[in-house]
Design a protein around this nucleic acid. Structure first.
Ligand SMILES: [Mn+2]
Ligand SMILES: [Mn+2]
Ligand SMILES: [Zn+2]
Ligand SMILES: [Zn+2]
Lengths: 149, 149
DNA sequence: TCAATAGTTTAGAACAATTCCAAACTACTT
DNA sequence: AAGTAGTTTGGAATTGTTCTAAACTATTGA
């Protein structure tokens, strides 16, 4: 019956992901379902295309890298992901789409969320005329001090 | 005598750039002198490698793209420039090395300085233990509203 | 249930930005 | 003037990403 419960939970998760894809008008294909689960089952994450691709292969999900890119962009357009730019050369996709900021561990390149709640930026000049603020991004770059300087 | 004054000013600028390179231990080569003047004579700027390369060619300075990259990185390491990351795919180099933030015009990709003076970020959690804040970056993404949405 | 259709996936080519390489060159020292 | 270490360069290589066109598949509605 442990196995039975397992199956029920499985089915639930599956249904949730399926509904999510449907709700944004994307066909629930094998690849998208699998990727959605890697991305959204579990806590918030910051992934690169390559990372997600490796994870998929490790989990025995056959997906091409082109599909990874397609999917990440479609999910982003659909508001399921957001892109974070902290490093030229690599695009990070963030499963946390709520307004929030980031710690960046410079050495490892790892990102960590800072809840927006409480954080305020004051003293900013008004947006230049003819423009609207689409987002304020705060990135706190951290140097790890210890072994390797 | 207008020509004479011109020459004096030229000499001054040259001397300044030369001293600047010497002070950071970089040999004042033809290429570095020319690039330093494109970068530092005049107001603060945000340039990409390609942009600087075109400017150099337009000004009849023969420099390879490899040298542009070498120089930009050497200047950055020497603290004469700083790198700003706002767009994956392209590296921007900023001649303003003082602490400051940026407006980013999303459509054009153009950056505009926001003096740090006055701007405060409050409510941030402490830096994770074992780390030090190396820089706080605030980027305000702007959408230009008008002709093209 | 079975086309027809529109949307999706894929391998591989193409692309853009950047880095690497090893040979030629040049600034500085002696 | 010669020696040395630092610099420049064209071109090849690498990296991350996008494009392409052909094969495949989910959806629809007859
Ligand atoms: Mn992108
Ligand atoms: Mn760089
Ligand atoms: Zn995040
Ligand atoms: Zn700036």
């Amino acid at each position: 019956m442990a196995a039975y419960i397992q199956t029920v939970m499985e089915t639930r998760r599956y249904a949730r992901v399926l509904a999510r894809l449907r709700s944004v008008g994307l066909r629930p294909t094998r690849q998208r379902l699998a990727l959605a689960r890697l991305l959204f089952d579990g806590g918030n994450r910051h992934v690169t295309a390559e990372q997600l691709h490796s994870e998929a292969l490790e989990a025995n999900i056959r997906v091409s890298l082109a599909t990874i890119y397609n999917t990440l962009h479609q999910f982003t357009r659909a508001g399921l992901l957001r892109e974070v730019v902290v490093d030229h050369g690599r695009a990070y996709f963030d499963t946390n789409t709520k307004e929030h900021h980031h710690f960046l561990f410079e050495d490892s390149g790892r990102l960590q969320d800072i809840p927006s709640k409480g954080v305020t930026v004051t003293g900013l000049p008004a947006a230049p005329s003819g423009t609207t603020v689409s987002r304020i991004e705060v990135i706190i770059r951290l140097r790890e001090h210890g072994s390797s300087q």
